[in-house]
């Protein structure tokens, strides 16, 4: 039955080449932990992507309860983790995932660095990777404020004060981030929410796509 449905669709829109294009590539022995256990270091990149998937999914579900408003943000987070079944777990996945993704990203970066895998012709992919790292830090910084608890509020205040120290554009930069020249408040929260949920994920998806396409085009770096 399933095979028939597949054939019916494939006859009309020829989907086999699309997924075969993703599936058809070889994995050399030196990156395969099944043959050589020390190759587990090559798993860090894949695991980073796995945590990103966890973050996207848990984040999407969290917005079903969360409101980015200073009077209700904290209450909605408190409600979802104390009253909603499994809310504690979903928020836990997003919270701990944010830390684990940084750890995995760091391990992946160090693997690539110490193997010199960024050397010609893979310079561009390294740069894309570092940009992904920056986007992740941005996601961490903006996401930290969203529960609107004390640690979120004061950490953001410190972060914005640091931005204000930048010469010439500091004050403007801070106002642009915070939405107000002197208050960290309602407009800061909505801004950070928009950046955390729409702007940075959009940038992340674009960069991830480039990262993966480049890996497929160039192939994985050879053994040392």
């Amino acid at each position: 039955m399933l095979q028939k449905v597949y054939d019916w669709i494939d006859e009309r829109i020829d989907i086999t080449p699309i997924w075969r294009d993703i599936a058809d590539h070889e994995v050399p022995e030196h990156v395969n932990p099944a043959h050589n256990f020390s190759a587990f270091v090559y798993c860090f990149g894949g695991l980073t992507f796995f945590v990103v998937v966890i973050q996207i999914l848990s984040g999407m579900f969290l917005t079903m309860y969360y409101v980015p408003d200073i009077e209700n943000a904290w209450k909605s987070v408190y409600y979802l983790q104390s009253e909603v079944a499994h809310g504690q777990i979903v928020r836990g996945m997003h919270h701990w995932g944010a830390s684990v993704v940084i750890v995995m990203l760091l391990l992946h970066t160090l693997r690539v660095f110490f193997q010199g895998a960024y050397k010609k012709p893979r310079e561009l992919n390294w740069i894309v990777g570092v940009l992904i790292f920056f986007v992740m830090l941005g996601l961490g910084f903006t996401g930290y404020l969203l529960p609107w608890d004390n640690k979120a509020y004061f950490a953001t205040q410190v972060g914005l004060e640091i931005a204000e120290q930048v010469p010439f554009i500091g004050t403007e930069l801070k106002t642009l981030l915070a939405g107000d020249a002197s208050i960290v408040g309602a407009q800061t929260l909505t801004r950070f929410f928009a950046i955390h949920v729409f702007f940075l994920p959009a940038a992340l998806f674009a960069l991830l796509a480039v990262h993966f396409i480049l890996i497929r085009r160039q192939g994985i770096s050879g053994p040392l």
Binding site: W74, K75, Q88, W148, D149, N150, K151, A152, Y153, V184
Partner: peptide, 10 residues
């Protein structure tokens, strides 16, 4: 469990 502190109090 993911930590949550008291509501932000400027």
């Amino acid at each position: 469990p993911s930590p949550l502190e008291g509501m932000a109090d400027p």
